[in-house]
Computed example of a mutant assay.
Amino acid sequence: MVDTNEKMSWINVIKIAGVFVSWAIGSGSVTGQASLQYFCGYGIWGYAGIVVEALLHLFLLISFFKLGHRKQFKSPLDIFTYYCGDKVGKVFQLLAMGLLYSAPVVMISGFGAALNQHFGMPSRLGSVLLGILCLVTILLGLKKLVDIIGSIGPFMIVLTIGTGIYYLTQHMGGVAAGIEMAPTLNLSRIAPTWWLAGLYYTTCTPLQSAPFFSATAKSFKVRKELIYGAIVGVIFYAAADIVMASALFANIEEFSTMMIPNLYLANTISPILGFIFIIVIFMAIFSSCAPSMFTLCASFCEEKTPAYNKFAVILVIASVLCSMLLPFDKLLGLVYGVYGVLGGIFVLFMIAKQIQEKKAA
């Protein structure tokens, strides 16, 4: 699709922002495990790390939306050869396929861990349930996927921020002490410094987000909607990171021992809220997991063909089985730690390509 003279729709802006928030909040953010590993472990400097990740997220998201809207790539993975050239681009395509497979494995494991912590149910049962829902969704195709995750994103972000703010009103006195104590605790830290952690928080995602968001841009005619949607989405996502990190600081010694700290936080407010938060965790993990699986399927097969459907079934079964191999927190650190470095290299290629284009213009 190309830009038209159609008036910008704020409903579409909210939908686009919702797609980003739903995708980004994922298993790490909504469970609180990412906040511990990327931000809280660095004390007060964790907030500066959130600023770093927000600015880089905005740059990447607008870049992917603009390029996808302009180029209308036939395959989602073509974005890598555009930025990196044929040879290096092919390498990044292979790396991206690895992440598009391994990221859902982490997310499925995260949902199994959440069910186990809250209900005492076997983690494997939760993994199977999420796998079934993802399969049904990706079989419906891109348009339905965008509609579904775009509509649940605003609900998730409002409830997440609301839960964190309410907890803070009851425990504000513990935040300062938690900020001071956090660097002394035996927390898993994704990087040796706060600014590197902020970069890794974002650079672990481009190999996964670039193909999905460039494909998403094809579903919208008005480019301005994509840009405004990116801005709104990143602002609300960063706000959620700040609120939830602050809430974890308020009782950091206890939360640092939890596999799913945000769920424990919700349960301390009310068992009913804890149950609702389980649903939010499920939606958040689903809305990050399904796009990765869809992108991988669409990279090999045309949507809604027998080959696409068979590939989807095999992919989901393999992802569920692999999610049972390691605990959630170990999987999170392993997968996203490695891809944080690889994604950073890809971002450098992006910047170089954009500079080259500006000089040639």
Rank of each mutant, 00 (worst) to 15 (best):
N12Y: 05
N12F: 00
A17E: 04
S22E: 05
W23Q: 09
W23V: 14
A24I: 05
I25W: 04
G26Q: 11
Y47C: 01
A54T: 04
F65P: 05
K71P: 00
K71R: 14
T81G: 01
Y83N: 07
D86A: 06
M97N: 04
L115G: 09
L115Q: 09
Q117W: 06
L133C: 09
C134T: 07
K143E: 14
K144I: 10
M156E: 06
I161T: 10
G162K: 05
Y166I: 05
V175P: 01
A177W: 09
A182D: 11
L187D: 12
A191R: 07
W195E: 12
Y201R: 15
T205E: 07
T205K: 03
T205Q: 04
S209Y: 14
T216G: 01
V222A: 01
E225T: 07
I231A: 07
I231N: 03
A239G: 06
L248P: 03
E253Q: 15
E253T: 14
S256R: 08
I260Q: 07
L263D: 06
G274K: 07
T295L: 00
S299G: 15
E303A: 09
K310T: 13
I317P: 00
S319H: 04
S323G: 03
K330H: 09
L342A: 02
G343S: 09
A352R: 14
